[in-house]
């Protein structure tokens, strides 16, 4: 019984993690930037969702519309913030040291923390209406909230969509080329700049989507971004930077580890995530799905 609870809890948490980590690993794979502000985009998505759901509610729309609101929050966040960030900020620093770019995203994180506070204030928002939309499902004595299970489906859809987009479409192959070697791709006529913009847009969208769909489950308040960043980093490092399969497996590992901790030894929650990461790194120093290294000399 406990095992089943841990399993479902783990997978639920893993789905949430996966949606967020997917965007992070995609941005790293294409742009080679580990985006600390990824958590901030998540937070903005959550806040935008809170605003939109309230607005839809105040317009008297049926509760089902709140799901559309969540989706729109993700789209709006990405549409506004992604081009602004990638074109307006990151582009200035392309080609600089990997770690320096991380610091740029750290600066962006600081800026967005205060910007969200300026726009939405410091008080928490509660937008719980969508949470009850899917009712409850019972498996014997256990009861699960339908919304949580819907998240699992959402995660699967996102993962499948990105995988299919990358591996089965022509544009996807172009993106894969840029992931492997932007210089050569560029000399073959690929508009690498555009690929960067699109990849970043998708990455932000996934983060914001994660935030938007999580908003009904939590209180939306300052500090959201920080919790997300730390955990999604662990997932991406475990899975291997730039790997979609890695993000999925990493999310599952972290999700299950955390569920195990929460149900058996709650104090070790954060600990469990890092222990999982440490174990993986001992055997696979670059994560589970390492990029193949070409010969240097």
């Amino acid at each position: 019984m406990l095992a089943l609870t841990i399993l479902v809890d783990g997978i639920t948490y893993a789905s949430w993690l996966f949606v967020v980590a997917l965007g992070l690993t995609l941005v790293f794979g294409v742009l080679k930037i580990l985006n600390i502000a990824h958590g901030s985009f998540y937070a903005v998505g959550a806040y935008a969702a809170a605003s939109l759901v309230s607005w839809f509610g105040s317009m008297g729309l049926a509760p089902e519309w709140s799901l559309i609101a969540l989706l729109m929050a993700g789209v709006a966040t990405a549409a506004i913030l992604a081009p602004l960030t990638e074109r307006g900020l990151l582009r200035v620093f392309y080609g600089r040291d990997e770690v320096l770019l991380v610091l740029v995203t750290y600066a962006l994180f600081l800026i967005l923390e205060d910007v969200t506070k300026l726009i939405w204030g410091a008080n928490p928002f509660y937008v719980t209406e969508p949470y009850g939309l899917f009712g409850n499902l019972s498996f014997g004595p256990l009861s699960y909230v339908g919304y949580d299970l819907m998240l699992i489906v959402l995660a699967a859809v996102c993962g499948a969509a990105v995988w299919w987009g990358l591996n089965r479409t022509r544009s996807g192959k172009v993106v894969l080329a840029v992931i492997h070697n932007p210089e050569i791709a560029s000399s073959m006529g690929v508009n690498v700049s555009k690929v960067y913009t699109v990849a970043f847009l998708i990455g932000v969208f996934l983060a914001a989507l994660g935030g938007a769909f999580t908003a009904p489950m939590i209180s939306v308040q300052p500090g959201l971004s920080v919790g997300v960043i730390i955990v999604s980093f662990a997932v991406v490092i475990i899975g291997g930077l730039g790997s979609i399969e890695g993000a999925a497996i990493g999310a599952l590992i972290v999700g299950l580890a955390r569920a195990l901790a929460v149900h058996t030894w709650p104090a070790a929650e954060l600990f469990s995530i890092y222990v999982a990461m440490a174990i993986v790194l001992v055997f696979r120093p670059e994560g589970l799905f390492q990029r193949v290294q070409a010969r240097k000399i």
């Binding site: 620093f93 740029v104 600066a107 600081l110 923390e113 300026l118």
Partner: peptide, 20 residues
Amino acid sequence: PNTWQLALGLFLLIVIRFLP
């Protein structure tokens, strides 16, 4: 007091940009 992180973030960007 409410935007000191914003100020710090902007300062960091300026430093990275102009004093590499």
